[in-house]
Design a protein around this nucleic acid. Structure first.
Lengths: 224, 224
DNA sequence: CGCCGCGTGGCAGCAAGGTGCCAGTTCCGC
DNA sequence: GCGGAACTGGCACCTTGCTGCCACGCGGCG
């Protein structure tokens, strides 16, 4: 029958100090998975960065999944993008969701969720949840948003390579799924030259496999 | 200081009957907003439809926002799409998120969340949450997923393939530009199995080259 | 128990992709 | 005309990707 949860499964903390004091070790103790969803990397700063400063930082162990999901606000200017790229360089994956994430959320190892609430009379509140169903739901929703979010690359202001008409034609034949053999004949050039073109294209697309090249090409709007 | 939530703010219900008995009025009582995130319209059926059958159905009042968010599985075949279109015709907005929503969630008027958990010994459990921060977070995440989800119109044509989590992982490693060798090791499977998976994936993507598969994968929002 | 179906992994062999090398051609500018 | 840079295509060789075949292990099922 209906069963009320034990009270320690959900706790509200008031202010950053209390967050650090009560949840710092929790955050640092993440082992397999560390998910963050927030508007930008500075939202949590007052509290979480204070914790991080004391070494209470989740360790980037091998096999650890560390994902940070932000809103477009996090890439509003070039400076912000640079800071994000620096974050990404230290290990975590970073993506930008199209929609605003008004409430920051952290999920630790799929077992604990830390949810930021609106400030009450100037003091930020944080809710620590351990109820399995609730944490699983939040984790699932973050995963869904993550899935449709763009990688940082789309925002790093990397100038999109300007492709010649021939390059576009080659990308189209590649996208058509032909073999190099038939594609080259179709384009009226030798196999050798065709492959040379493809190699050059992959260079400009910064791709190391044809699959990756396909993804990148699609991002540029060609290939389909 | 730390404050433990009052115990009635989070309750776990066991089984559909209990859901109907204890939360039926809650669901029917939604006035401004009714959000559902689930894999497909039939996941909740045993419990919620039973409640609906007794007239405990949220009323489509003017000004009421009623949104139903499903996964690609909900539009896996033409029959399912038809049923969804019928649902949409009665009022609610329906969208399809690219990613799997493994845990069903309902949010009522931004004040109450009902989260489905995994069945325990055959009995489905539902967790009713009223903690404001938790509900607000879940609502925000559903909104973010909703924002990037596609309308039903995009699917009334051909059904988009329903990819498993493993498939997504494989597409991501492909998109990362690894060789099969390193990719398979990274995913902890043999080279042979990895290639088998890739072959299967290319089949479902209807691609004849890896480049083409990359393009198709990008169209589905995975691989980057 | 044996038998099945099923998923996995190793191996072999082939197909496809990728590249260094060199010869031939074209198109400059001197 | 001459030399050289730039581009092309053929050849050879290697890597990578792809798949058929078979063996092994595992969980039902009679």
């Amino acid at each position: 029958m209906a069963r009320t949860m034990s009270t320690d499964r959900i706790v509200t903390l008031r202010g950053d100090q209390e967050l650090v004091a009560r949840a710092g070790d929790l955050i640092a103790g993440a082992r397999q998975e560390f998910l963050v969803a927030a508007t930008d990397p500075w939202t949590f700063s007052p509290g979480v960065n204070a914790a991080f400063a004391r070494g209470k930082r989740p360790h980037m162990a091998p096999g650890m999944v560390m994902r940070k999901l932000y809103t477009p606000r996090a890439v509003a200017d070039a400076e912000s993008v640079r800071r994000l790229l620096k974050i990404a360089a230290t290990g975590p994956e970073v993506r930008i969701a199209a929609a605003p994430l008004t409430h920051e959320a952290i999920v630790l190892d799929g077992r604990t969720a830390i949810l930021a609430g609106a400030p009450e009379s100037g003091v930020r509140t944080y809710t620590v949840v351990r109820t399995p169903e609730v944490v699983a739901s939040i984790r699932s929703l973050i995963a869904a948003t993550w899935e449709t979010a763009d990688g940082l690359a789309a925002f790093s202001g990397r100038p999109r390579p300007d492709l010649t008409e021939e390059s576009r034609r080659i990308l189209r034949t590649l996208g058509a799924g032909h073999t190099d053999e038939t594609a080259s004949r179709h384009l009226g050039m030798s196999l050798r030259t065709y492959r040379r073109r493809v190699a050059e294209l992959m260079e400009t697309l910064d791709a190391t496999s044809r699959f990756q090249a396909g993804v990148r090409a699609r991002d540029l709007g060609v290939g389909g």
